[in-house]
């Protein structure tokens, strides 16, 4: 009897929700104790940012000064060392942040001549001073990378990370979707915890899931990163994602029935909003009205305008 109750109780504790309410002899009291306990929080005194700042000041600088042994150059070396030390202690590495507003795609050349095409509504952060040491950058949104051969090149996102040596690949990390498409070379994709990791080769697509990374063959690899030329292709893509891309490309706000579970397979170009909307809406039997002055588009059911 008690065993059975405990089993239910564990189920309930492990899967929060109202299903499987535990029933025990003094169930009400225990249940209310458990739910009261879940409303508790630790009495934090300092903010996370505050603690990070304190921690960062204690971290040693990543670059180190070099030692020279020749007695003749010792004096010069010493003064250079001091200068370097002063440089690294007082001028800690500063990040370079490149942020694209909606409606803007840009091209960024990295210190090693690798090239990044950054899509609209996306952000790229890296440390130019540390680039020689670690080719590592942070991405929010979408970008296409053409990586020069060299040491490991890392792309970190809020959803997972990508490591390569030298290749062309596209990273998409928006909302909860994290995908990597590889055009050439070999790319390693890892989740944030580091317990899921897969390698993909040319023409493959990795989609990050909760328990595994799904790998599929890309039907048309030539289209990887075609957005850099303003061409957007979709294959059974949720409507919210397609409208999200339209919003970012044309810098407009799109109002639509978000409860719709329709998907879109097709194409639009970011050269002409009216045409793009027709491309997306017509096959789905949707109508749109365009208030260009207000930068607003309203999508409704019904095929006629």
């Amino acid at each position: 009897m008690k065993e059975e109750n405990n089993k239910k109780l564990h189920q309930w504790l492990n899967e929060p929700g109202d299903s499987g309410k535990p029933e025990t002899s003094n169930g009400d009291r225990l249940k209310s104790f458990l739910s009261e306990a879940s409303k508790l929080d630790v009495p934090a005194k300092r903010s996370k940012q505050d603690i990070w700042n304190a921690l960062e000041s204690r971290m040693e600088p990543t670059a180190k000064t070099r030692r020279l042994y020749h007695p003749v150059v010792w004096g010069i070396a010493a003064s250079i060392s001091i200068l370097l030390a002063v440089y690294f202690i007082f001028i800690s590495p500063k990040p370079l942040i490149i942020e694209n507003d909606w409606g803007k795609i840009s091209t960024i050349e990295l210190p090693d001549k690798s090239v990044v095409k950054l899509n609209a509504g996306s952000k790229l952060i890296y440390y130019p001073d540390e680039w020689d040491k670690t080719r590592s950058l942070e991405l929010q949104g979408e970008a296409l990378f053409q990586v020069e051969n060299g040491s490991t090149f890392k792309v970190l996102t809020e959803l997972g990370k990508v490591q390569v040596l030298g290749t062309v690949f596209n990273v998409y990390a928006r909302e909860k979707k994290f995908t990597v498409a590889c055009q050439s070379g070999l790319v390693s994709v890892t989740n944030l915890d580091g317990d899921l990791s897969r390698e993909i080769g040319a023409g493959q697509l990795a989609v990050m899931g909760k328990t595994q990374i799904q790998i599929t063959k890309i039907a048309d690899p030539i289209r990887i990163g075609s957005w850099q030329n303003g061409d957007f292709y979709f294959s059974r893509t949720p409507l919210s994602e397609v409208f999200g891309e339209l919003e970012r490309q044309f810098n407009v706000i799109i109002e639509f029935d978000t409860s719709q579970k329709t998907t879109y397979t097709g194409y639009f170009s970011n050269k002409d909003l009216d045409k793009a909307l027709t491309n997306v809406c017509t096959p789905l039997g949707l109508a749109y009205s365009l208030k260009e002055k207000k930068g607003k588009v309203i999508i409704k059911q019904g095929g006629q305008r």
Binding site: M59, T62, P93, I125, Y127, E130, T134, S136, L137, E138, S151, T152, K154, L156, K161
Partner: peptide
């Protein structure tokens, strides 16, 4: 490579 970058 196991080197942890500052960003990581």
């Amino acid at each position: 490579e196991s080197n942890l970058s500052r960003q990581e």
